[in-house]
């Protein structure tokens, strides 16, 4: 089923890749995300061969950059989505994608475990809320992500718990800023 593995479980897989270069964890992540990413990329205009090339790059990046994943600000699905989005701009539109300045990240800013658990729970709830949406509303969101619609009121119109997620991310950012000032 769709929710047999929760967001928090995938977080643990990325930690195992980061700490133990664990190939079994990587293969499990691949089997879950690669077919979803391929579908996403085809829907955003790639042909199947391009989509698969992109999926390979994205998953290799997941392996290489596991240490940069911050589970107090993103679910693994979100992190994978952002890598795929950037790679798609790179490959299909042949453009650079300017990214915001990184906030320093390292052992000294190891995220608070309680924050991580709450954030990952929110992420699982968001995914569940999306699959429970009536088709008409889900199509709206998808259109916005595939560039067919500019839509600013998604949270209000669909009742998705985006506000909660935003305030949790804000808290995690404050904690990071604080850790930076202490150095």
């Amino acid at each position: 089923g769709l929710h047999d593995t929760t967001a928090a479980d995938w977080t643990d897989h990325v930690r195992r890749i980061r700490d133990d270069a664990d190939e079994t964890a990587f293969v499990a992540l691949f089997r879950h995300f690669a077919p979803r990413l391929k579908a996403f990329l085809i829907r955003s205009g790639s042909n199947p061969a391009e989509a698969e090339e992109c999926v390979q790059d994205v998953m290799a990046t997941v392996w290489r950059k596991a240490h940069l994943f911050d589970p107090s600000r993103a679910s693994v699905a979100t992190w994978v989505f952002t890598i795929a989005r950037n790679r798609r701009i790179d490959l299909l539109r042949r453009q650079k994608r300017p990214e915001p300045e990184d906030l320093p990240w390292g052992p000294e800013a190891e995220p608070d475990q309680e924050e991580v658990v709450q954030f990952q729970q929110d992420s699982t709830n968001l995914a569940r809320a999306i699959s429970d949406l009536p088709d008409k509303q889900r199509v709206l969101i998808e259109k916005a992500y595939f560039g067919e619609l500019s839509h600013s009121e998604i949270a209000e119109e669909t009742g998705l718990p985006l506000g909660t997620i935003k305030s949790r991310i804000r808290l995690a950012l404050d904690r990071l800023r604080h850790a930076m000032d202490q150095r």
Binding site: P35, V80, A84, S123, A127, I169
Partner: peptide
């Protein structure tokens, strides 16, 4: 930054609940 990352969360949840296309 928090607003952008919250929107990213929506994109992630969409990928999570998306259909699948088998990879070779």
């Amino acid at each position: 930054r928090a607003a952008v990352e919250a929107c990213d969360a929506l994109g992630g949840a969409m990928v999570e609940s998306s259909d699948t296309v088998a990879v070779s």
